[in-house]
Design a protein around this nucleic acid. Structure first.
Lengths: 233, 233, 233, 233
DNA sequence: CATGAATGAGTGTTCATTCAT
DNA sequence: CATGAATGAACACTCATTCAT
């Protein structure tokens, strides 16, 4: 009951703090919207429910976001696009090897997006892309392109330094991105539904991915890896 | 179980003529529904459009499937035919190296599933898993488990023969499956929407995956690969 | 209560004639829509009320008319545009003097439009033209242009035959149209609200207009006219 | 009577300073509202836009006018200032022929009303008469009746002097009024919407009307007129 | 006195579902 | 069996009105 703030008159300091009207902050709306979009998808989420969950009226929502699509865009910006600036800066300052950088990339993605509610957004986009072309274009520009640029940059660094083999960067980028996206989608769909024998421990999954990105399955490659044991957490 | 209501009428005259006629319509409806569900998702698909595409009236559709949800369930069930028996047999007879077997696995999947309409089913399941838990469980048993067993078997063969490093098979399996599922979903969603810089050539993508599964990015691994050139088609 | 036709089972001839569902005919919807559009204007008329008055559900209305604007267009076509073909034919066959033709023009307009509910449409268009540009364009093409063509033709005939003075046809047309439009608007607004000292008898008003169109106020013109006495009905 | 609540506070200090400040705002609001009501109609005008255009907040508007309807009433009342006294005096002093007087009547109406913002009021009244019966009655008394009296007086003068034929004054008055009202409405609705073949030059239109009021279309009447050429500006 | 954030009833349109024929 | 006309609940978005500050 977010409306519990109603009529909470602060008698002590002489000031009336809260009244019948809920003071809306866009933040609460964005949180509520993220929850519902991830849970139900874009189309199936009713704006009224978003408003209710944020403890305000439908009208108030439209006061802050001119349309449902704009609300969604704001959610994406708040939870995903906004992160790329910081990431790029971190990459600028990164001192270690590119292998370490790749590891950092996967694990910071996990901490900032993968393990949060925001990880539901990629799944959502996959599901609804066809039906909302404008949102899709937005997502392309705000998420896909910055994300691929970031990874491309990383791979280029590795190739330049001689750590990585020369490669077609386009497919290299997808090789790095796909497992992250897959993990996000898996957790929000099949992985979450059934106590499956395939319930993945995310960090172990990412370690396995990382290990394979670097060394592959082949036996002649370096032998001690996440694929063998759960030694990395 | 809407499909069970269909085919159990023609017991009297021994001929399946009447029942065959009846079964013709649900089949067309299921085909039409698969196309549309994959293209637009469950919610955005209108039953009337399904009926039109199948050449029948909306009323007729509801004659065969008591609700849109039942239609959806029937679509998913119908398209999960057990291809796994055949695959297992092929694996029994396979003579080459496990590396070749892995390659065969990815490419036969592409030919039989990935490049066909059936590739829409994983996307559907990912998108709608939350809304159809009963269906999800069914999918787990009928597809995910047989599929993982198949790949697990393959990996075990590789480890036993010394071609592959020892590994935690659970994560190994996901490493193999993820790119296939990702490819299927990508093609049916974001990948098809935007004239993206990320439009993937499926065979090249699979080659790149295969290459990385075997060798990873590292420079000390075998240098000439699909990642470098487009020599594989 | 148009829904009184419900469950009116015709027991006599063995046939069930009417059932719970109302059989909608677009005609009833058009009638209801004309009533309400004229009474309340386009924007203020709720489609649900139109449907109710026609005795059907809101959904049924959208079965016949894809949008409120289309409903309006159909109303205009049914009640106004459709008349011009007949009018043109009558003008083709007209044998008398152009003065008689002008009289015929005004009075047949009165019988077919001015005295009917359709006379509310011009007022409505005047009120709402600015807010519904698409409707306005439609009205231009379907009503204003055919109407002006008809009158222009009439005036040209009179000038050619020497009955009328040479004139700038554009303003001649407006001189003829304006009083008809004014009468229609007056009746649906100020004229209908108050038992005014200006309550106009339409036929007398039209006679006065006709007389003035032909002769003006001047004393040197033909003396016996509608302006003097109420001899015409 | 919302305007009565405004100006009766400043009795104490004799100076109208404070009250003058207060009155400034309603004036701006009424101006803004007139513009918008005329342009868009009552329903389509948003109070927020009125407030913005007047440079105040929405809340302030409701401080002065308890509702949108009250604002509308105030707008109409405000803009019906008694110009009729002046007009009557001018008629008292008029020396020329009644034909000249009629011409003066039309053109001074154009200068004082027709060409100004005030010409929007008749359109408003025509559009909204049904919804504001109380206002309509007010308009009858304050505008229609004085106006008709003025014209009636003019026509009577012409008949008495022998310039005009004897006539039923009631219809004579409408014959004179109708084209003025029509012009005002046309300019504010259809005439302004469409780059129509019927875009009217007001002075030419009034000349044509005047000419026809005096002579009609008939060929035996005086031949050189505004209907023939555009020689009058 | 002035503000503007908050409200919530109201509207056009869609679409799964029903049912008389 | 098959049809398709009819239904009505649902939903995004608007805007006059309120009221705490």
């Amino acid at each position: 009951m977010p409306t519990s703030t109603i009529a909470h008159t602060a008698a002590s300091d002489g000031q009336v703090r809260r009244s019948r009207r809920k003071e809306a902050r866009p933040g609460e709306l964005l949180d509520a919207a993220l929850d519902l979009f991830v849970e139900k998808g874009f189309a199936a989420t009713r704006v009224e429910e978003v408003a209710q969950r944020a403890g305000v009226s439908k009208g108030t929502l439209f006061l802050y976001f001119p349309s449902k699509e704009d609300l969604f865009k704001a959610v994406v910006r708040e939870n995903i696009s906004g992160r790329f600036a910081e990431w790029n800066e971190e990459f600028d300052r990164f001192k270690g090897s590119t292998q370490e950088m790749l590891r950092y990339c996967l694990f910071s993605w996990w901490e900032r997006i993968g393990s949060t509610k925001a990880s539901g957004i990629p799944k959502l986009m996959m599901s609804e892309a066809q039906n909302f072309p404008e949102l899709t274009e937005f997502y392309q520009h705000e998420v896909i392109q910055p994300g691929t640029s970031l990874i491309e940059r990383l791979l280029r660094r590795g190739v330049t330094s001689g750590e990585f083999r020369p490669m077609d960067l386009k497919y290299g980028v997808v090789l790095v991105m796909a497992p992250m996206l897959f993990l996000a989608m898996w957790r929000h769909s099949l992985g979450s539904c059934c106590a499956s024998h395939l319930e993945l421990d995310p960090k172990q999954y990412l370690n396995a991915q990382l290990d394979m990105l670097l060394h592959g399955f082949s036996a002649q490659n370096s032998p001690i890896t996440a694929l063998q044991e759960n030694q990395f957490q």
